[in-house]
Each structure stands twice: as C-alpha cells, then as structure tokens.
Amino acid sequence: MIEVVGLTKDYGTRRALDGLNFTVKKGEIVGFLGPNGAGKTTTMRVLAGYLPPTSGTVTVDGKDLIKDSLSIRQITGYLPETVPLYSDMTIRGYLLYMGNLRHLKHVDELVDQAIERVQLTDRSDGYIGNLSKGMRQRVGFAQAILHDPDVLLLDEPTIGLDPAQIHEICNLIKEFGKHKTILFSTHILSEVQQLCDRVLIINKGRILVEDTPEQLQLRLSGGRNVIVRVNGKITPTLAAFKKIKGISTVTPLGENSAQLTVQPDFEARPEIARVVVKEGLDLIELRGADLSLEQIFIQLTAEDESSPNPNLTSAE
C-alpha cells in the first residue's frame, strides 16, 4: 500500500531523512518508533503530502506521491502531531468543513458517525477552544477517519493523554486497523506491542530495524529470559541450571535469585522447577523476563550512536 524507496529530505543543510526504505502492506498496522528528532514527523509529513521529498520515491496504492498528490490525499487520513484545530469552530462545524473540502457525499451522516465513534456526541456543538487535550485528540482522530480513508497516518496519537484515553485511542486504532493500512508513530512501546503487526525503528533519518514486535524481542535478547527465585541460597544450584537443555547462560541476581537465558524454541521452565525441588529448595517465583521494547529501543539507538554503520537492519 505504501512503498518508500530511498526517501531523503533536507531542511536547508540539515538532512532529516537519509534514504529511508520501507513498505507498509495493505491492512497492516505498523508502529513507527524513534527518539525525538529521528525523522518520524518528517516522514509522516512527506507521506501526508505536506512536504515534498528532496529525493526518493513514495508510492501509495500504486500512485506516485508527487504526481497523484490530490488523489492520494483523498484516500489518506492524517492526524498531525500537534493536532491543529480551529478553536473558533464547533466540533461539528469543523468536521463538516473538513468533510466538504473532501467533497464527501452525505457529509452530515459521516460527521455524525465520526463524532459517535470518538464518543463526543454530547459535545458536538461545543467550541473546540473549550476542549481538553484528550478531547482535541479525539476530534483530530475523527477528522482523520471522517472519510473512511484507506491509509491512516497518525503522528503520536496518544501523546499527552491519560491512561484511560490512551486505551480509548488504542481501541479506535485497533478497530479501524482491521481493514485499513495504518502507520503510527509513538514513544509508548506498550502500544506498539499491543497494536502493531510490525515495528519500524528509525534513528537519525535511517531505518534501524524492521520486524514484528515478538521477533524483535527474541532476536535481540538471544532467546527468552527466565527469572528464578528460591527461599535459600541459590548459588549451589547454578551449575545444575546450566546443565538443563536449552539454557545458554545463567546469571545470579543476588543471594536467592538468578536469570536464565533460554534459547528460542525451548520450554525449560518445568525442568527448572524440578531442579529446584531436587536441590531441596522451595520455588518462590518463576517468571519470564523478556527484554522489554523499551530496553531494545534504548539498546538499539545507543548502538547506533556509537557505530557509524548500523548492521541491524532486518533482512526482510
């Protein structure tokens, strides 16, 4: 659906995007991660047709982003990072305005539907200037989905929201993403785990990694981590843990717990429990401790800072 090849964007002498390559398939929800200033918003703006690329090509639905800009904009919904709205308009008035600019048929019904979807029906005749941040975000979202776009670009849709509102927006994205292509950028990695089919991590204008959230975790931690805690000294047992099939490393964590790294495709937990009991200890805790996306993210971007040529780019 979206194909980006060699996308480069310069702001004056500063290179914001440095030869981005990625594709988003039809019906996929792709999370766009990266530290601030990595080029997420610039990429979004290029895809939305706001900024023309310096070089490289972008095709959406088989059409060239520059040549067919208007028809691509017609099928794209976009929520900018700052959620710009007219504070002197009512919610309904604003959505009608945007709907009319898109030449929507039955615009009144579509506006009602969009308002209902973001649960603002009781506020629909209130002025946007009086809305809270979370409500503004929902109005912005309503604007983006008003015309039932095939492609939805959401630039940090959950920023500045409280946990309940984040949950709400995530549900909206999930529901909408069943049939649509969605690219959304975020800092909140639990959202990515929850929503995305695939993750793109970007840093300094380049794609660092492109993979599914699960694969990313497995690949980077070299397997799954398991934490064992017992009610006694764990040190004598460590050697026994090491002998268990599939366990590659054993790291003690204090007096009575240890972290074991299990190779992918092995289930070592029952055997771990047996070893503990055999050694005459009581098992207090046995839990998975996968590298969180946060850790992966920090690890990756830190590696990128130190090495000029990142070689982590996925083979996909």
Binding site: R45, Y50, T82, P84, Y86, M98, L101, R102, H103
Partner: peptide, 14 residues
C-alpha cells in the same frame, strides 16, 4: 502558526 495549514494542505485542496 496554529498548524491548521498542515491539515488543509494535506486535504485534497489545491
């Protein structure tokens, strides 16, 4: 300044 230009310029408006 308010950023609404971005919304208009990404809508199908010449």
């Amino acid at each position: 300044k308010t950023g609404t230009l971005e919304t208009i310029m990404t809508a199908p408006v010449r």
